[in-house]
């Protein structure tokens, strides 16, 4: 069996990739995808912990958290995509840098 450390390392690496995606990507849809990557990092970590609680058994607490959290991520993505469609209507582009009329 692979050591648990590798799964945690994977989760943290996924999290950093998600943050990199949010910081550097210009396409608004890719930003929403970055959010999904961030949430999935946490999911990987939950599932790994629940599988490693004891040998041959899994802990259903971690699974139930992930099941519910997936649907929340779906809600946020849906709302994000709705806002993206309106941004596209206003600007005729998905480049987030064209949007920066507001001061950061």
């Amino acid at each position: 069996m692979i050591s648990l450390s590798y799964y945690i390392a994977c989760a943290v690496v996924l999290y950093i990739i998600g943050l990199y995606c949010l910081a550097s990507k210009r396409n608004m849809i890719k930003l929403v995808m970055g959010l999904e990557i961030l949430v999935n990092a946490a999911h990987v970590s939950f599932i790994a912990f629940s599988a490693y609680r004891s040998v041959g058994y899994i802990d259903p607490l971690g699974h139930s958290v992930v099941i519910m959290s997936i649907s929340f991520a779906g809600c946020v993505t849906a709302l994000g995509l709705v806002i993206v469609t309106y941004a596209y209507k206003h600007y005729k582009t998905l480049d987030v840098r064209k949007l920066r009329r507001l001061k950061w």
């Binding site: 999290y15 949430v39 990092a41 946490a42």
Partner: peptide, 8 residues
């Protein structure tokens, strides 16, 4: 998402 990672 950060809160969720901390929770995990």
């Amino acid at each position: 998402a950060t809160i969720l990672l901390a929770m995990s």
